[in-house]
Amino acid sequence: MEVTTKGIVFSTIKYGEADLIVHCFTESDGLKSYLLRRILTARKGKLKMSLFQPLMLLELVAIHKNKGTLERIKEAKVAHPFKSLHANVSKSGMVLFLAEMLKNSIQEEEKNRELFQYIENALLWLDEHDAIANFHILFLLKLSAYLGFYPDASNIESQYFNLSEGNFQESPFGTYCEEGLKVEALKGFFGIDFDALPQIKLTKKVRLETLDLMLRYYQLHIQSYKRPKSLLVLNQLY
């Protein structure tokens, strides 16, 4: 079936000498993997390698057989030309990290328009703004709502955050309770949107610890979670 849909590139893998497998999250069908034949050696053609950078937002005309096999892209073009996302060194490091986290976290092979629109709007915001040092923490917190494990903040004034239960507690109960500056920092991300990020002031040490807290939270709530390889680069930047 031929479909026209937006797609967000999560990753690419070289296949053989000339082919490429592209993993995309599509607005119409959720996760899709496409085989692009001879794209690595072709000098002409509708599909260019530059289109398939991490988190590129594309307009796709694709053939979806929906049989669990690799699909085919007939046409692709940029849906929104990002101004800084791939040109700015700091943002490109953020992009690599977010793309890896999204690929590790989203496992839905079905349409989820709300999740797609959340990612799309977040990327558009990231492209337009410069105060982004804490963007990835808020992005992951908000993403967890779409993945089904957003923390319960009804007792947010409590001292402890239980990673396993996903709630705040007055006393440490269980193996995965955390406290301290990283928990207090995490509380500041609840109930805000991206425009409020400049108001959050964290030292690099606390930022790294808060991010690590979120990543351990993801590890407990996502099956087959893989720690992102791009984390080292991200931590050096932020």
Rank of each mutant, 00 (worst) to 15 (best):
Cys177His: 09
Leu213Gly: 03
Cys177Gln: 06
Glu184Thr: 12
Tyr176Asp: 11
Phe135Glu: 01
Val183Lys: 06
Tyr176Gly: 01
Ser171Phe: 15
Phe173Val: 14
Ser158Thr: 01
Tyr146Gly: 00
Phe139His: 05
Leu181Lys: 15
Ser154Val: 13
Phe149Met: 06
Asn134Ile: 07
Phe189Met: 09
Leu147Pro: 01
Gly188Thr: 10
Tyr150Ile: 06
Phe194Leu: 12
Leu220Cys: 07
Ile137Lys: 01
His221Met: 08
Glu184Cys: 05
Met214Gly: 01
Tyr160Cys: 04
Pro172Ala: 13
Tyr150His: 12
Asp195Arg: 12
Ile156Asn: 00
Asp193Ala: 08
Leu181Val: 09
Tyr176Asn: 12
Tyr217Gly: 02
Leu197Tyr: 07
Ala122Thr: 05
Glu179His: 10
Lys201Cys: 06
His221Ser: 07
Leu141Thr: 02
Glu165Asn: 14
Ser158Tyr: 12
Lys142Asn: 08
Trp125Arg: 04
His221Ala: 07
Val233Gln: 09
Val206Asn: 02
Ala153Phe: 12
Ser164Ala: 15
Ser164Met: 14
Ser171Gly: 03
Leu123Glu: 02
Gln159Asn: 10
Gln159Phe: 12
Pro228Cys: 09
Gly148Gln: 09
Leu215Val: 04
Tyr146Gln: 00
Pro151Cys: 08
His129Phe: 12
Cys177Arg: 09
Phe168Gly: 01
Leu215Met: 11
Leu126His: 01
Ala145Lys: 13
Leu208Ser: 13
Gly174Val: 10
Asp152Arg: 10
Glu170Met: 11
Glu184Asn: 14
Tyr150Lys: 06
Tyr225Trp: 15
Ala196Thr: 09
Gln169Val: 09
Leu124His: 11
Phe149Trp: 09
Ser154Thr: 15
Asp130Gly: 08
Gly174His: 09
Ala131Arg: 14
Glu170Ile: 08
Arg207Cys: 09
Tyr217Thr: 02
Gly191His: 06
Tyr218Ser: 00
Tyr176Cys: 07
Leu126Asp: 04
Ser164Leu: 15
Leu143Val: 04
Ile119Ala: 03
Asn121Gln: 15
Gln223His: 13
Leu163Glu: 06
Tyr218Pro: 00
Asp130Arg: 13
Gln159Thr: 14
Lys229Pro: 00
Leu163Tyr: 07
Phe135Gln: 02
Gln219Leu: 11
Asp193Cys: 08
Lys229His: 11
Lys226Thr: 11
Gln199Phe: 08
Tyr218Leu: 05
Phe149Cys: 04
Phe139Glu: 00
Val206Gly: 03
Asp195Thr: 10
Gln199Leu: 12
Glu120Tyr: 10
Phe149Glu: 03
Gln117Met: 11
Gly188Asp: 05
Asn162Ala: 05
Tyr217Ser: 03
Tyr217Lys: 06
Thr210Cys: 07
Gln169Gly: 05
Leu202Thr: 06
Leu220Ile: 07
Gly188Ile: 04
Gln169Cys: 08
Leu197His: 05
Ser224Ala: 12
Phe190Ser: 04
Asn167Asp: 10
Leu140Ser: 01
Ser224Cys: 06
Val206Glu: 03
Asp152Gln: 09
Val233Lys: 09
Leu124Glu: 02
Gly174Gln: 11
Leu143Phe: 05
Leu147Lys: 07
Gln219Cys: 10
Arg207Gly: 04
